[in-house]
Amino acid sequence: MSSLLAARRVDLLLLLVAVAWGSSYLAAKTLTGTVGVTVILSLRFLITTLALALIWLIGNRRRAGRRELVTGVILGFTQAAVLLLETQGISGTSATNAGLIISLVIVFTPFTESVAFHVRLPRMLFVAAVTAVVGVCLLVSGDGFAAPTLGDLLVLAAAAVRSIHVTAVSALTRGRGYSALHLTLTQSAVCAVVYTLADYQGVLRAVHGFDAGQWLGVLYLGVACSVFAFLVQTWAIQQTSASRASLLMGTEPIWAVLIGITIGRETLTVLGVIGAALIITGTYLGLRAETRHRAATVPAGRESAVKP
């Protein structure tokens, strides 16, 4: 009975991570209507970096090695590019669309990994990719078939770049025993520096001019969507299988849709609903195919499931 309750607790926490990620699109969308994208990202990652640094200080304070630090810096720049594209895209589309389109990273990543590591892919991944892409076409079509908005294209580009980032994470860290906390802290610090330098005057104005609601939004993105999600997923993956964790956290686009429609009062046309269903189906099929393929080719204990 106790083991069942423990398993359910892990599942619940992983679902909370998915809810936090799914809600991040609406939170970012709300903030982009008041200040610039780089200002939002600067404040978000300054908060994230400070929180992670505090966690490091409370912990064992082991210093990162030189190669570990260099790897974190490189990944920090690719992460900064992903989030800039994603957040800029969110400002030009709906939170619902953004949450669904960015989920294509689940389908894109196996293809970038296949190119990087010369690995053959299961056929189901191609079926999942076609299903998801058709879903995106329907989602962005509105009342009829039309060209996607610039925001939609930027989020799609973010999904593609994120798949490259995830592949880079795997290529640069596999088998090296790097600390997840060190890498995440370094990446967050790089993002904070890049975004702050991009518009430091805007950041200073925001610090002095933000109201309580805006600070709450930034804190939510920095603490709940970054620090909390990182800590929970790192702990939870040690308590369950990577495949189960991936499937639970893969519900992110579903929460993005539900939150966008209920709280954000966004709407979907009939074609949009069909497209959303196809995207969710495609990402789910892709995730299952990838995890089964990984389980068949990777020795036990070598799997991982970390949000890029």
Rank of each mutant, 00 (worst) to 15 (best):
V35Y: 11
V35T: 10
V35E: 02
V37E: 04
T38K: 11
T38C: 14
V39T: 10
I40E: 09
I40A: 08
L41F: 06
S42D: 03
S42N: 03
L43W: 07
L43A: 12
L43N: 07
R44Q: 09
R44H: 06
R44K: 08
R44I: 11
F45D: 06
I47H: 00
T48A: 15
T49N: 01
T49G: 09
T49E: 02
T49Y: 02
L50A: 15
A51Q: 10
L52Q: 01
L52K: 01
A53W: 08
A53T: 13
A53E: 06
I55V: 15
W56K: 10
W56T: 01
W56A: 12
L57G: 07
I58Y: 12
I58N: 00
N60D: 15
N60K: 13
N60P: 11
R61Y: 04
R61L: 08
R62K: 15
R62L: 12
R63P: 04
R63K: 12
R63L: 15
R63G: 09
A64G: 13
G65S: 12
G65H: 06
G65E: 10
G65F: 10
G65K: 07
G65I: 04
R67M: 12
R67I: 02
E68K: 05
E68V: 03
E68M: 04
L69W: 12
L69I: 03
L69D: 05
L69T: 06
V70T: 14
V70E: 10
V70D: 05
T71C: 13
G72W: 00
G72P: 13
V73W: 02
I74R: 09
I74P: 07
I74A: 12
I74K: 08
L75C: 03
L75P: 03
L75Y: 09
G76W: 00
G76N: 04
F77T: 07
T78K: 08
Q79P: 03
Q79T: 13
Q79M: 15
A80T: 11
A80S: 12
A80L: 04
A81H: 04
A81L: 15
A81R: 10
A81S: 13
V82E: 04
V82L: 07
L83D: 11
L83I: 13
L84N: 14
L84S: 14
E86V: 11
E86R: 08
T87P: 08
Q88G: 11
Q88N: 12
G89R: 01
G89Y: 02
I90N: 03
I90Q: 06
I90W: 00
S91G: 11
G92S: 01
T93R: 06
T93W: 04
S94T: 15
S94L: 02
A95C: 05
T96G: 08
T96W: 01
N97Y: 03
N97E: 10
N97K: 12
N97H: 14
A98E: 05
A98R: 06
A98I: 05
G99A: 11
I101K: 06
I101F: 03
I102H: 05
S103V: 01
L104H: 02
I106M: 12
I106Q: 09
I106S: 09
V107N: 04
V107F: 05
F108S: 07
F108K: 10
T109V: 12
T109D: 01
P110F: 03
F111G: 01
F111M: 05
T112M: 06
E113S: 14
E113M: 14
E113N: 13
E113W: 09
S114Q: 05
V115T: 13
A116R: 14
A116F: 13
A116G: 09
A116T: 11
F117C: 01
F117K: 03
F117Q: 02
F117G: 02
